[in-house]
Design a protein around this nucleic acid. Structure first.
Lengths: 232, 232
DNA sequence: TTCTAGTTACGAACGACGTTCGTGTCAAGC
DNA sequence: GCTTGACACGAACGTCGTTCGTAACTAGAA
């Protein structure tokens, strides 16, 4: 089957193409996705190139285009694959805040397992069915919790956006930390803030500790709390 | 002066290099930044290449590297330039919510004037002094409003992150709309949501209107309200 | 003025990227 | 057994960011 048809079918399930006879092939689109995820997990999203994936599959880059339209298409398949692994709880009206936080934490951890992949998530129109499944699940939790439909719809969008941006920032900071000399572990960043001229940056220097504080995902939890608590 | 020194000086004002004699040059780093912004405003951030900027300056790409370390450095200069144009109000304890919203709206409009440039803002460590100036200004507003230092510090980060992500999503949707055939003006997107199988996506189909609603920056205002109101 | 030193400008090239073309290969239907 | 269509893939194209080597130029010393 043509990969363009496959993409169209993925986006629009009604137009499901007639199921051709299964043909024995050397490798499949799923193998490409798995290999790509391995590459990202090991070397980061920046290292994800068609050639790199092809090499990991012992072939040339041209072979991939029989199963994948584009690199953008591959990106879409990747985050679709990530979304497929998420478990969406049955909505419980008494625990909707924790449920939403839990789903967001799942997405966060999934993104961070594959550093930099959230860049692909941000640069993509959310048309893939697996993404819609996630947003449907979050919407269900919020509606069950009594959130008004309009607020719930916008909140899902805002939460997904923030989670992706948070993970991207984290991945960028880490990968930069790896090789660049001018970078920022929290302690070094704090030292820099404190060393700024105090007359032009009084609050930044005084509160350098707060600006760089936060073990683990404290910053993440704080922002999610801000958003979720505002929905009550 | 070596561009590496210039970058170092920009990041670390104490280490200000001895002011060399001003040398008459054919073009300066500021001209490169302005030209790059023109390119982005006209053709989007994706079209911003070293060659494109060089061509607009009637020269070859190699010439740029006398003033700019690399493309990442140019990105940094670009958003530094954007931040320099922001006006930060004198903190008013009685109007801090509106002041914060106003600053965020300024950032948003500045990002949207140069479509896709928020990608550069997200992929960057916030070390540039102009960015610190903005975050200092927002911090000042929040602290004047009585927000606790830790909450204020984290809120500044969350707000900047959300604004950048929001603008990136908007830019992506628009640029995709330009050429790709499979895309989403709000009406088309709503039709797609409504056309999904209702048994697996009951809430998405039922609330397709809410999911795609929002003229102007309603979604933006909603999320900012969520965050800002939670800080009281 | 002339010379020298150091900086700037830039054509040409390198390696890597995404993508396409054309050809070879192989399994399934008549 | 032969045809057919999908698949695999080497080779190539055009573009990207970046570097190298060299020519052009300016500022100060002689």
């Amino acid at each position: 089957m043509n990969p363009r048809e496959r993409r169209a079918a993925r986006r629009n399930p009604e137009a499901e193409a007639a199921p051709r006879r299964p043909r024995k092939t050397v490798f499949t689109a799923a193998q490409i996705v798995d290999t790509a995820l391995d590459v990202i997990a090991a070397e980061g999203y920046e290292a994800l190139t068609m050639r790199r994936v092809a090499a990991a599959l012992d072939t040339g880059p041209a072979s991939l285009y029989a199963h994948v339209v584009n690199k953008a298409d591959l990106d879409e398949l990747l985050i679709g694959r990530l979304c497929a692994d998420l478990v969406l709880p049955e909505p419980d009206p008494t625990a909707w805040r924790d449920q939403i936080r839990g789903v967001c934490a799942q997405i966060r951890d999934q993104y961070l397992r594959y550093p930099g992949i959230s860049r692909a998530a941000l640069a993509m129109a959310p048309t893939d069915l697996e993404i819609v499944r996630v947003s449907e699940g979050m919407l269900a939790i919020l509606l069950a919790g009594g959130v008004a439909p309009q607020a719930a719809a916008w909140a899902v969008d805002a939460l997904l956006l923030y989670v992706a941006a948070y993970c991207l920032e984290l991945s960028v900071a880490r990968s930069a930390n790896a090789d660049a000399p001018w970078v920022l572990d929290p302690a070094e960043l704090r030292r820099r803030f404190a060393a700024l001229p105090a007359e032009t940056f009084p609050h930044t220097t005084r509160h350098a500790a707060e600006l760089t504080a936060g073990a683990g995902h404290d910053r993440f939890d704080f922002t999610l709390g801000l958003m979720v608590n505002g929905l009550g």
